[in-house]
Design a protein around this nucleic acid. Sequence first.
DNA 1: TATCAAGTGGGAAAAAGTGGGAAATTTTAA
DNA 2: TTAAAATTTCCCACTTTTTCCCACTTGATA
Lengths: 148, 148
Amino acid sequence: MLIGEYIHTIDEKNRVSMPAKFRKELGKKIIITPGLDSCLFIFTIKEWEKVSKKLSDSENDLSFLKADQRSFNRYMFGRAAEVEIDSIGRILIPDFLKDRIGLKDKAAIIGVEDRVEVWNDKVWSQNQEAVEKQAGELAEKLGNSHSL
Amino acid sequence: MLIGEYIHTIDEKNRVSMPAKFRKELGKKIIITPGLDSCLFIFTIKEWEKVSKKLSDSENDLSFLKADQRSFNRYMFGRAAEVEIDSIGRILIPDFLKDRIGLKDKAAIIGVEDRVEVWNDKVWSQNQEAVEKQAGELAEKLGNSHSL
DNA sequence: TATCAAGTGGGAAAAAGTGGGAAATTTTAA
DNA sequence: TTAAAATTTCCCACTTTTTCCCACTTGATA
């Protein structure tokens, strides 16, 4: 399971070290996509196959016939990248994804069960401060809606 | 799987480089057609066969009126072109397709699972900015309909 | 203090993308 | 029908980006 928070440098070549603790589970290749909220999602190939199967949809209709589907697919596939983890554990973050979440200098790399998230470190810490305050409320809300 | 965003130059001879990452999957010949939402669709020959079968199959459940289907098929088939990828990975975009989406200088070339889309780069980025704002909603909407 | 693992930085080689000239082909006009 | 003009195709060369490899730094451990 992927857990924990790591703050790593992003260098001028757009490289970031994956935390050593994540490497085994992630394997050699990963998929990096825009996430929801201002972060990126990193999936293992296996996990991505599950996700993309669900995205590409319904049996044998042509997915491009529905406007909503087109928009969302463009967003998730069009702005995704298959990335290799290099021999010493680094990945390359494509510019278009880096720009999307305002990455520079430092990235917060977060394990969230079966995926990894990448945040601008400042945004991450602000976000956490905010969540901290509501954590109690959130737990109750979730608890009510699907019996946590 | 075709994924990712690439911004490439379109030169005075109407040539554009296919992203190197797409070339293997696309093969030597491709079909380029007008797409939906001010872009062009590029299919592999194989994928095109699937698509055209589904579009022309009267048994399918496209929820189109017949007359509409005819019009749509004229649109997709009538203005499609078979194009070769040259020895260094470039394609030629026919003028009538180029004009249709206002291509000049820079093209955004997008992998969307099993097709490639070609956009005017400005139009693409505006489009994505808009989608970005609704991504959460869209995810929930699609998530409800087929349990993302 | 020596050693090892993890993270960071940078140079050199390779690959990808871009531009343009010349040959081949097609079109146009006499 | 032929020659000139225009367009298309093929090939080469330059520039930029990416990839690969090596080395340094830091911090934890024995």
